[in-house]
Design a protein around this nucleic acid. Structure first.
Lengths: 350, 350
DNA sequence: CTGAAAGCGCTTACAG
DNA sequence: CTGAAAGCGCTTACAG
């Protein structure tokens, strides 16, 4: 394997100085078009590959974004990550995605590694717990960083927060069930010590209080297993609630599965609203009502906010909440809603 | 923001030469313990951050692995990616994950960017289509690269393939349904021009031929929507098959949802086997029989194979197939299988 | 065990 | 518009 060609090789091949080649590389207007073309041809002829390490050494920003996700196996976050990455790519930035697996130690380690690798900025949907050290390190390195979805560090002046209006989502979901005539509504899933849980639950508490209804909260991990277990429990309970707002669609889909198992018809015997509106919510049977948080939109907007910060130097507001909406489907409405007709040939090509 | 300290600053602070600091950085045995400690202390005191760009310029490998995934939104691949990343991290390598979104152009672009950023190696679950150019570029850059799950480039001598034994999986699934007394078995989902589809289908064809049964193939995108549509279609067909092997769990879960909608009981009126054994398969109702491909295990083993290549210089065999197994659940067996008891408190903490 | 020196491949003023 | 020169922060022989 021959040594990789450098700008000096290209310069020799094209018969110019290496500064000129460098100028071509930055797309500088200082270079005559004919010269630029000559140089470009030499580059392809020699199979030249730009060496970003060398550029980085001279202080050129790496054009790398560190995207750290608390749980990449959760489709809600995967969608967020994938769309943020797309948007960054359109703007010419490469994105390093890492999964912290809800583990603050892995998160800290990943942050350290990314700083060494010279990322230009961080976007993190952070893992809870751990000390502030990881965030401190970002601050010391002087890297722009945004927290998305969840607030793990309170210094939103340093690490602006961008998240859906979860509290309003909880309100919408509970209101919806109230309007369908339910009074006895449970809130299922979510770990109590987390800000997201508190926010989602606050809207629920608020509506329940307003209507003089008694709240019932079943906290737990936001997993299908937990949801399924709660549904099976409800199925055997004489005084089970009539409806539930779930912490997440994962919990709700678990409940849906548990109710199917117990022979309880959703939308009739029990009304259910999830949270996040992941793809599976629409495809489930019966289709699951959910609070649409738009992870894709958030991914795109987060990327744009960060690009603005990076390119214009304009720091975003400490906290910004995006609108959420209720998507009512048959898990709460019941079967009076028409079923979407579906034909295999209509499946959109990708 | 003060300038980042360099090894020279550390050297001054510690009262040694910068070579010594560099030696400490590489954990060289040449440095006296007391000196090493002094230097380490100076590093933390000055808040020193290692600059990999500078090291990269001198030829030090970046310790970066490029992991390119055809579809990061598909949980099967997400699990693979997440576990490979974990394994690399344990070995001190950072992983850059990118989603190509089944788009060979994005894939090519991502590969180019990663080469510029100096990744040490590639692991790709490739997107189909596109020319060989992207792979050529990897080859020219002299980077070790493995294809996983799918073969997009035939040069497995250059880009070794590591994939589950899909053909055997198709065989196991079809055999299983035969043993349950089915003769009229369809194969549902999967795009025809893809190697993975051909492999999964080949096992199906083989068993059908052996048993003298007539195959029936419904090709289509591997999505829940497609599965649901096929199920609804079967529900109205007088001569519908008795069972199906699905290209993937996504398709099977779509069918499961469609059958629920049509009031057809799985395991009794129709028997279903999926492919991949994603997490949702076990949680669905009824639980979905599937071919376990072990994306996590493959992720770990792929990482280990690559680490071996990188650290020992030993190139893996051109093609390696990992064992698959049938996980029989109620979607094929029917309800004679006992239901797993489940208690919310048993949900494992994470 | 430690120091002085060269050089990795770029970018950036500074002259021309 | 283009060339010569310095320097970014490391690593790597080579002396001592």
């Amino acid at each position: 394997m021959a040594k990789r060609p450098t700008i000096l090789d290209v310069a020799r091949h094209a018969g110019v100085s290496k500064s000129t080649v460098s100028l071509v590389l930055q797309n500088s207007a200082l270079v005559k078009d004919s010269t630029r073309e000559k140089v470009t041809q030499s580059m392809t002829a020699l199979n030249y590959v730009y060496n970003r390490s060398a550029a980085g050494l001279r202080g050129t920003p790496s054009g790398l974004i560190g995207l750290i996700i608390n749980d990449l196996r959760n489709p809600f976050f995967t969608e967020f990550a994938a769309s943020a990455q797309m948007r960054f790519a359109e703007a010419g930035y490469s994105t390093v995605i890492a999964n912290a697996d809800e583990n603050p130690e892995i998160q800290a380690q990943v942050i350290a590694a990314m700083i060494e690798h010279g990322v230009s900025a961080f976007v993190l949907s952070p893992s809870y717990g751990g000390d502030a050290e990881a965030f401190d390190r970002i601050a010391r390195a002087g890297k722009p960083a945004m927290q998305v979805m969840r607030k793990a560090d309170d210094r939103t002046d340093l690490f602006p927060l961008y998240a859906p209006d979860f509290a309003h989502g909880g309100e919408l979901a509970t209101d919806h069930l109230m309007q369908l005539g339910c009074r006895s509504i449970a809130f299922v899933g979510g770990l109590e010590d987390r800000s997201v849980t508190a926010e989602r639950m606050s809207g629920y508490y608020q509506v329940m209080a307003r209507e003089g209804a008694t709240p019932r909260v079943l906290s737990g991990r936001p997993t299908k297993n937990f949801g399924r277990a709660v549904a099976l429990k409800f199925a055997e309970e004489p005084a089970a609630p009539e409806a539930a707002v779930c912490f997440s669609d994962l919990v709700a889909l678990g409940m849906l599965s548990g109710f199917a198992e117990a022979g309880i018809a959703l939308g009739r015997d029990f009304r259910l609203v999830g949270f996040d509106d992941i793809e599976d919510a629409a495809t489930a049977f019966p289709p699951l009502s959910s609070i649409h948080c738009g992870p894709q939109e958030i991914g795109i907007e987060t990327a744009e906010t960060m690009l603005h910060w990076l390119d214009e130097g304009e720091k975003p507001a400490p906290e910004r909440r995006t609108a959420v909406s209720l998507i009512a489907r048959r898990s709460s409405l019941g079967s009076n809603e028409p079923v979407t007709p579906l034909d295999p040939r209509l499946d959109p090509p990708s």
